[in-house]
């Protein structure tokens, strides 16, 4: 994860072409979208897009204002990582011959992940956790030989008030 990043939670109408409209506003300015997660909300008329971008604050404000102008965008909130709960799902297939299999299983248990498929010399595992925990596990698995890895991109919601 780059040092400066922003997490936008964009509530949109759940219909064709909306994602293209949203992503085009980043693309025309040359901003790379670091990760993107889209799915319908509890109200199926709407979807929530969680987009992570590596942009300075000032241009981001302009992008947010432009996003707000899209007819199909209902609401945008920027989520400060300090004030939000974030989760991401990762699936990994890793080389796991008999002599290291135990170590990998131990690692997955330590991270509270799950083994989801077992092959002769490979294991597939999943972890849903804070994105930084995913980074950690990924780093620890790398020496064993990662064959495939897929992350979903983060989803986030604001932290609840406690006061």
């Amino acid at each position: 994860m780059p040092p400066k990043y922003h997490v936008l939670s964009v509530l949109v109408e759940n219909r064709a072409g909306v994602l293209a409209r949203v992503s085009a506003l980043f693309a025309r300015r040359g901003y790379n979208i670091y990760s993107l997660a889209v799915a319908p909300t509890d109200d199926e008329r709407f979807s929530r897009i969680t987009v992570v971008v590596d942009v300075e604050q000032a241009p981001l404000e302009q992008v947010v204002k432009q996003l707000n102008k899209l007819i199909h965008v209902i609401k945008i909130s920027e989520l400060d990582p300090r004030d939000s709960v974030e989760r991401e799902l990762m699936l990994v297939t890793v080389k796991a011959p008999a002599e290291v299999r135990g170590q990998i299983i131990e690692l997955v248990e330590l991270f509270e992940g799950r083994i989801i498929d077992v092959g002769r010399d490979e294991l597939a595992l999943s972890l849903d956790e804070h994105p930084e925990r995913l980074d950690d596990l990924e780093e620890l698995l790398r020496p064993f030989g990662i064959i495939d890895l897929q992350r979903t991109g983060r989803v986030a919601l604001p932290k609840l008030e406690r006061s």
Binding site: G17, A20, K69, I71
Partner: peptide, 14 residues
């Protein structure tokens, strides 16, 4: 058409 004109319209719709 909607792809081409997305950036030059206030809104477009197929």
């Amino acid at each position: 058409t909607v792809g081409i004109t997305r950036g030059v319209t206030k809104h477009n719709e197929l």
